[in-house]
Design a protein around this nucleic acid. Sequence first.
RNA 1: GCGGGAGUAGCUCAGCCGGUAGAGCAUCAGCCUUCCAAGCUGAGGGUCGCGGGUUCGAAUCCCGUCUCCCGCUCCA
Length: 510
Amino acid sequence: MKVELSRLASFAKEQGFIFPSSEIYEGVGGIYDYGPLGAELKRRIADLWWRAMTQLHENIVGLDSAILMHPRVWEASGHVEAFHDPLVDNKVSKKRYRVDTLIEDYAQQLEERARRETEKKLRKKESIIPLEEALVRHGDYQRAQRLRSQLNTAMAQKDWEALSRLLVEEKVPCPESGSTEWTAVRQFHLMFTTQLGALADEAQDIYLRPETAQGIFVDFPLVLKTARLKVPFGIAQIGKAFRNEIIARQFTFRMREFEQMEMQFFVRPGSEGEWYEYWKHHRRRWHEHLGLHPANLRFKDHEHLAHYAKAATDIEFAFSFGFKELEGIHSRTDYDLSRHALYSGKKLEYYDETLGQSYVPYVIETSVGLDRVVLAHLSQGYTEEMAPTAEGGQELRTILKLHPLLAPIQVAVFPLVRKEEFVQKARLLYEELRYHFPTAYEEKDSIGRRYRRYDAKGTPFAITVDGQTLEDETVTVRDRDSLAQIRLPMHQVRPYLQERLDIAQWLRTL
RNA sequence: GCGGGAGUAGCUCAGCCGGUAGAGCAUCAGCCUUCCAAGCUGAGGGUCGCGGGUUCGAAUCCCGUCUCCCGCUCCA
């Protein structure tokens, strides 16, 4: 039973995990804010990723590069070229095409047809007129030429209206449906632009990065030099990225402003295969050990590889709307570093002492969407189940079953009832525990209500001070998922919790 | 982008044969309460998504628009 996205969104809003951005102004599509609990959850996930990468691998270092970078970076990376294309949708087939390739392909078809027909005709007539000469008189050939010249003119002038007219006037059909009903041609900019420089007339267009990876590639020589690294080594970075998605959908799954956790691992050419396998499995293990169920995860190898990639796989999670990408692991060859070497004119090579030669390292990339990991944990953790009531009946209980290390509030301390002696003891315990764990104290409402309230926040441990505490200094520790309680001496509570909320121990399992 | 559904209190929703808004939960104050969303008293909180139209009067009828959700489509 998968929780519906709409239910999850309202739960996340109600509990303070995720809010729609600028809600009092009607919101902004595809942008969300993290509330008090969401901010905690998100930073815990980020922290465990950071530790798993940098702390656990002596050859991986961190980086925090700026969102704004030199515009040439995005020319080198291919983003400028790849994402400024005019697009059009066919109304019948619902397919979306790049207008230039659509028209070019159609022109090509027309020309081929004209050529075939003309050849046939000439052969039949046993004519001695040269093919090229006869061809120019063929209507389809003329149309093809006309299409091309108008396409080139419109593209050069970025005149999308002219392209729209061209599609209609020349009745360019959809390759899929044959339909000639098109939406207006529109240019989509994947990248957000802003201006560098305070004075408008001196300002230069600059992009908000669409991925954090390029900061790593661009800083490659500086990191290499200052961190005294030897191949193989990695650079890890967590940061915001921005994509002007045409349609932002599925809650926080596809956002226009989002956070990536990327690690680029630089290896000797020829060894990329084994490192690709290593990172594939290491990264999947990380997700599993944070509590994502193996059955909810799968690898999905890319069938069509990007031009720079040698191999690529996604780690997918079973969201309510299907298995979707959480993380990509890509074998990117030396494409990025070579491109930046070309565009910058700088050498981006590594001198390998053991080989006695220089080379451009190959790169294995692990790139995970932090927001998607948050969403995965909320999706999987959100649970509604029947629980016993005080009267002996059954009632629906809402629990957020997060891994204890991810819980925004890890411990809650309650006096069983709001009685001065209980309150004093409970406050004492709270004051001690807060130095070690994110801890909450609550005395309002009945104990049952308080338990349920913290179940919904994902708090794994609830400590209660009761009558017996006054006699023998013991308290109860309640487990969120099983509802089971154990009784511990007060002074043992901290070590008990520390054992269960120990990051070092968790890291050892990776 | 297309099709369907929905926007009323923080959340879930009722009210919609037109007469200027209600419930439960949540929040706050207090009482009561010895282990799983108990009870009582009181309080705060709403431009009924937005704009326009019809009307003496619109949450309710009409038009437009925005946003969200679901499906399809798209996604370096």
